[in-house]
C-alpha cells in the first residue's frame, strides 16, 4: 500500500494508471511523472521500492498542484468570477453553462435533472 499526495492509496495497478487516481493527475501527467522518475510504465505499484515511491512523492510536491490544493484553486477561481460581476460569474451563479452553449435544450449537466413543467403537454 502506497500513500502518495495525502490520502490516495492506489492499488495493484500499473504505476501510470494508479497515479491517475489522484485528483489533478491524468494519463498525460502520470506518464510525465514516470519519465521524470525513470520508472518503467509496465511496473505495478506494489513492487515499487520505498525510494521510488519517495521520488514520485517528491516530484509531485515540487511540480504539481493536486488534491485539496487543486480543488481549492478551482473553487477560488470560480468564486473570483462570481465576485467580479462579469458574465461568466453570472452564469456560474445561476448554474448555467458558462461557455456560450445553448440552453433551449440540453445543458443538463449544469441544470441538473429536468423539472416537469405544469400544463406542458403534446
Amino acid at each position: 500500500m502506497a500513500r502518495i499526495a495525502g490520502v490516495n492509496i492506489p492499488t495493484a495497478k500499473r504505476v501510470p494508471i494508479a497515479l491517475t487516481y489522484i485528483t489533478g493527475i491524468g494519463p498525460a501527467i502520470a506518464h510525465q511523472i514516470c519519465e521524470a522518475t525513470k520508472i518503467d510504465e509496465q511496473r505495478r505499484v506494489n513492487d515499487l521500492s520505498d525510494a521510488e515511491v519517495l521520488a514520485i512523492r517528491e516530484y509531485i510536491d515540487a511540480n504539481l498542484t493536486v488534491e485539496g490544493d487543486l480543488r481549492r484553486e478551482t473553487t477560488m477561481n470560480i468564486k473570483r468570477l462570481m465576485d467580479l460581476g462579469c458574465y461568466r460569474g453570472l452564469r456560474h451563479r445561476r448554474n448555467l453553462p458558462v461557455r456560450g452553449q445553448r440552453t433551449h435544450t440540453n445543458a443538463r449537466t449544469r441544470k441538473g435533472p429536468a423539472k416537469a413543467i405544469a400544463g406542458k403537454k403534446k
Binding site: 473570483r80 467580479l84 460581476g85 462579469c86 458574465y87 461568466r88 453570472l90 423539472k115 413543467i117 405544469a118
Partner: peptide
C-alpha cells in the same frame, strides 16, 4: 474597473439580457 478585470472585455460586465425566470419555477 478593478485589477482583476484587466484583459477581459467591457461587454462582460454589462449583461444584455433580462430574465426573471419562469412563472412555474416561482410557484414551485
Amino acid at each position: 474597473v478593478t485589477e482583476d478585470m484587466i484583459g477581459q472585455k467591457f461587454g462582460e460586465y454589462s449583461p444584455t439580457r433580462t430574465y426573471y425566470g419562469h412563472a412555474a419555477d416561482k410557484k414551485a
